[in-house]
Design a protein around this nucleic acid. Structure first.
Length: 616
DNA sequence: TTAGGGTTAG
């Protein structure tokens, strides 16, 4: 073919080069360019961008620089397209500073090359430098088009700088691009990233044309800022408009179902993905579905998806390992991790996968395995250290936990201290518990939870004076402890209960049921631990007779679901020993399975036993 | 015949 190309037909040469690039064969594109030079054909303004791209994609910096020489020789150094390709080549192969030099040597009027430079800084996690480029560009009078504005807004979001975001928003407004589809979408994301969901939502509502990216952005933003219900509502609105959510949208809304344990909504969306073939074979969607099932207490459904997945990635394995662990099946989690390592598909564990397997070791109290996996983590994070320290502590190896943490120089990290403290609670190691809790309170004086933990320890030791003192501290500092609440989904509706609540329409009947259970427990001589709890003890002492929120929710479940149905309750705080014991007894007395989710794990109560083996 | 951009999962 080459020999039959008429000498001057640069168009044909360009087409050949383009074809090689489309086939992703950059080195062959460069070879064709060389043939062209050998035949004495001069490249033009269409050839250079392609050849420079070929050099960039093939990592051929030396060739790229030679081509740069050709550009200068042929006097094409000020062509906008050529400059852009040069900026891109130098940036990718030699870094942004190098790209910057090209830009400075050009006419500097082309927004595309400026935007490229901005994007490079943004991709390298240097959004502040990206913004610097943007402001320079604006000051130099370069036209700010939609892509330039969008890129700068993306950088503001990454920097979480609403100040910059608003400035750029203003510029967009002045140039009439505020509601441009691209700009508006990025503006919405920027406001979410800067944690100003109100502004994000207001802009979304004003958008005249919302595409699927707009909807996905607002749903994902709502979910990430904790507005789970809002996310679900938006998703329903979208469907009600007759639009078809795609795999991005579905993967954005599923975490809301997971976080709320909204099993019914999650199952509806699962149905939607099956009916519309959305996300079949896409790990992002399948993994989000699995996670939703794990977190809404349906481990079997998650397993079913997992074992049917043709291509599992590291997230799929991690979700499933974590799923086993959260449901009290640590051994199965460790087994699955081993299986992943043996898998011929060759998935390499990352930091999160190691977190999951350590979590499984923690759940199963497998100390040696935990040590082994920890040793394999290349750069253990504080979350890994906290898990292993917690594992040692819950196994009663307090001295080992202490030396391990000190060796890692993490004795001042609240996450680690909290993990160790949990072991102290389980083993009722009051002296070490007290020291640990005091340190925690010193490190985070504004976190009311810490004083609650400390006061729990004083309460366990009967030091009510100290308990009272801590309550005063909390009050004087103007802090507030979290109020416990539990909820249960019945008939697609959430029923929320607080301690001693009497506001539910069926309150009297609930109370009666709970009293009946307590009475039965007494008859059967079942003991109810008083405890070393995780609640505000004073609240607890006052409210035991009225019933903790989880017991109210369980009692409501007993009277409002069919005999034999599993009762699924979620609680915003961790259970106390007395409620844990009551739930065990209730499962035995009624023959019901009770699935209670607290912020850290699931408790499966059946026949008077709990899946956590009382280690929690 | 040529360039820069936006939404997803642990």
């Amino acid at each position: 073919m080459l020999d039959r190309i008429p000498k001057r037909d640069i168009f044909a040469w360009n087409a050949l080069i383009r074809a090689r690039l489309a086939d992703r064969k950059p080195s062959e594109a460069i070879l064709i360019y060389c043939q062209m030079l050998l035949r004495g054909v001069n490249a033009d303004n269409h050839t250079f961008p392609r050849i420079l791209n070929a050099a960039r994609l093939g990592g051929a910096f030396f060739s790229g620089r030679q081509v740069h020489g050709h550009v200068l020789k042929l006097g094409l150094g000020s062509d906008d397209f050529v400059v852009t390709a040069l900026v891109s080549m130098y940036g990718d192969l030699d870094g942004p500073c190098s790209a910057r030099k090209i830009l400075d040597g050009s006419s500097r009027r082309n927004p595309v090359s400026w935007t490229l430079l901005m994007g490079m800084y943004s991709d390298q996690e240097k959004p502040n430098l990206a913004l610097k480029v943007f402001y320079e560009m604006a000051a130099a009078g370069v036209p700010l088009d939609s892509v330039a504005l969008a890129t700068a807004l993306g950088a503001s979001g990454r920097l979480r700088s609403v100040l910059d975001g608003k400035k750029i928003h203003d510029l967009a407004r002045k140039s009439g691009l505020e509601l441009h589809p691209l700009v508006a979408n990025v503006l919405v994301k920027m406001y979410f990233d800067c944690e100003v969901p109100g502004d994000a939502r207001a802009l979304f509502d004003r958008m005249p044309a919302k595409d699927m990216v707009s909807w996905t952005t607002v749903i994902s933003g709502a979910v990430h800022t904790g507005a789970f219900n809002e996310g679900l509502k938006l998703f329903r609105e979208l469907c009600a408009e007759g639009r078809k959510p795609d795999h991005f949208t579905v993967s954005s809304v599923l975490p809301a179902c997971a976080r709320m344990s909204a099993s019914r909504h999650g199952r509806e969306i699962h149905g939607y993905t099956i009916r519309h073939g959305v996300g079949a074979g896409l790990p992002a969607v399948q993994n989000a579905l699995m996670d939703m099932f794990v977190k809404s207490g349906r481990l079997e459904s998650a397993q079913k998806i997992f074992f049917q997945m043709a291509e599992k990635d590291v997230v799929s394995w991690t979700v499933m390992i974590m799923g086993y662990s959260l449901h009290g099946r640590g051994e199965d989690g460790v087994k699955l991790f081993r299986e992943m390592e043996r898998d011929p598909a060759g998935v390499a564990p990352d930091a999160a996968a190691y977190y999951a397997v350590l979590h499984a070791c923690h759940t199963a109290c497998m100390v040696e395995q935990g040590r082994f996996f920890f040793g394999r983590i290349r750069k253990p994070g504080v979350e890994h250290v906290a898990l292993l320290a917690g594992l040692l502590a819950r196994a009663g190896k307090f001295e080992a936990a202490r030396t391990f943490v000190e060796k890692r120089r993490m004795e001042d990290r609240p996450e680690v201290l909290r993990a160790v403290l949990d072991g102290c609670r389980i083993h009722r190691n009051l002296p070490m518990g007290k020291r640990t809790a005091e340190k925690l309170a010193e490190l985070e004086p504004l976190n009311a939870e810490n004083y609650v933990l400390l006061s729990n320890i004083h309460a366990a030791g009967g030091r009510w004076g100290s308990v009272e003192g801590l309550r005063r501290t909390i009050r004087d500092m103007g802090l507030r402890t979290k109020q416990a609440c539990s909820w249960i989904e019945v008939g697609g509706k959430f029923h929320v209960f607080r301690v001693g609540d009497v506001f539910h329409p069926r309150s009297v009947r609930i109370r009666w049921e709970l009293d009946r259970m307590m009475e039965k427990m007494r008859e059967e001589g079942l003991s109810l631990d008083a405890d070393f709890s995780l609640h505000d003890v004073d609240e607890e002492r006052e409210s035991i007779p009225a019933g903790h929120s989880e017991l109210l929710a369980i009692a409501f479940g007993l009277i409002s679901t069919p005999v034999g149905a599993v009762i699924r309750v979620t609680k915003n705080l961790r259970l106390c020993r007395s409620c844990h014991a009551s739930a065990k007894h209730i499962s035995w007395l009624t023959g019901r399975d009770i699935l209670l989710k607290d912020p850290l794990r699931f408790h499966h109560f059946r026949d008077g036993e709990c899946s956590c083996r009382d280690l929690w």
